[in-house]
Amino acid sequence: TPSSSDVQLTEEAVRRYLIRKPMTTKDLLKKFQTKRTGLSSEQTVNVLAQILKRLNPERKNINEKMHFYLTE
């Protein structure tokens, strides 16, 4: 059987996470792990960077770490 990815790295998926709560880059990467999306590390970084540039989320520091978030 072909391996199917159970998670898709899409703008809509990222948007939904960032509306729910502020997240660091690492938090986001954890949601879209390569073993779940089937993407390479490089693809994941590139696609996520493009999506974040498009979404242009708000940023704030929480515990001295930069978090992204979106409001509806």
Partner: peptide, 20 residues
Amino acid sequence: SNSEADEMAAALEAELNDFM
């Protein structure tokens, strides 16, 4: 691994730094 996650986060932040 954790170090791979760190590397990816660093790469992503580097990509975004030009933009932010």
